[in-house]
């Protein structure tokens, strides 16, 4: 593992250890069902009748390559968060195989960080202390401070190090969380609707930020979103799920150069209409 220096015009230098073929995910024949507890408690028998099982993921086969940014689309309630939670190791009640870098994984780990649908910054810690969580193992205090500052600068939160989350806006909280996640230097980053609840402009800016960070750090990123445009603008590849139980309805590589523009790239626009149709909206608005 050699060390490479990447230079970013605005953000200064960042040193990142280059990882060989890390963050490679294979999902084979993944099935997942939830048991409806309400109905279960009504019947006495120990066996769970078939109709009380809610299938959520139906034979999913997917592969995410090292360094790939994959956006996952699908109707609400189809099982996107469930899939993400399984791959991240938070849920191991499933059948099939999930291999990360060739190994069936064993629970959550700091090699694959999950950015939750709702803010999970610790409200009792400042931005700096939150980011520091990912760098606890670092012994050298000076080096650690430098790293913290680097990641805070990446997400443009310089000057807010000593602020508590409740003193930040919604968009800044998301960015702080992103910094905390990146600071661990994970192989894979999972993001579940990272832009939900942000206003339009903040949303656009945050989206760009994530694209930049991805090009900059180059780790595997799985992003669940409701926003078709987000997926098309950000993704190296998009996956569209059917409604529950989720099946892969479409998996498409996006070979469009960035920055992407729906007007200048007619094929992209066509794909957009196609996906709108697929998700049940006949006319793209």
């Amino acid at each position: 593992m050699g060390h490479i220096l990447i230079k970013d015009l605005n953000k200064g230098f960042i040193e990142q250890s280059k990882k060989q073929s890390m963050g490679h995910v294979i999902i084979k024949n993944l099935n997942k069902e939830f048991i409806d507890r309400r109905k279960k408690s009504r019947c006495r028998s120990d066996a769970v009748p078939k109709h009380n099982r809610i299938p959520v993921l139906d034979n999913i086969n997917l592969e995410f390559l090292n360094g790939e940014m994959v956006c996952i689309l699908g109707p609400s309630g189809c099982g996107k968060s469930t899939l993400l939670r399984i791959v991240a190791g938070f849920d191991n009640a499933f059948s099939g195989n999930v291999l990360i870098d060739g190994k069936a994984h064993s629970g959550p780990s700091s090699d694959h960080i999950f950015v939750f649908q709702h803010s999970s910054l610790f409200p009792w810690m400042t931005v700096k202390e939150n980011v520091e969580l990912g760098l606890r193992a670092m012994k050298d205090q000076e080096e650690k401070e430098e790293k913290i500052q680097e990641y805070i600068d990446i997400v443009d939160l310089g000057g807010f190090e000593m602020h508590y989350p409740h003193q930040l806006s919604g968009g800044m909280q998301r960015r702080a969380e992103l910094a905390r996640a990146l600071a661990v230097n994970p192989d894979i980053l999972f993001m579940d609707e990272p832009f939900s609840g942000l206003d339009f402009l903040t949303h656009m800016r945050a989206r760009e930020e994530v694209v930049n960070v991805h090009q900059f750090i180059g780790i595997t990123m799985l992003i669940v979103t409701h926003d078709i445009d987000d997926a098309l603008v950000m993704g190296d590849r998009i996956i569209v799920f059917s409604s529950r139980p989720a099946r892969v309805k479409m998996a498409r590589k996006l070979d469009f150069p960035r920055p992407r523009d729906f007007e200048k790239q007619p094929e992209l626009n066509e794909l957009r209409s196609e996906i709108f149709l697929m998700l049940g909206v006949p006319h793209a608005v």
């Binding site: 991240a88 938070f90 629970g107 959550p108 780990s109 700091s110 960080i113 999950f114 939750f116 709702h118 999970s120 610790f122 009792w124 810690m125 969580l133 990912g134 606890r136 661990v184």
Partner: peptide, 27 residues
């Protein structure tokens, strides 16, 4: 305490001691 915080703890490889001092106690 918001259960998400404990998931974050698992994600960041918190030790049991850290769960107490960094999450439960301040929360």
């Amino acid at each position: 305490i918001n259960p998400v915080f404990f998931q974050v703890a698992a994600n960041f490889n918190f030790s049991r001691f850290e769960v107490v001092t960094k999450i439960i106690f301040p929360a």
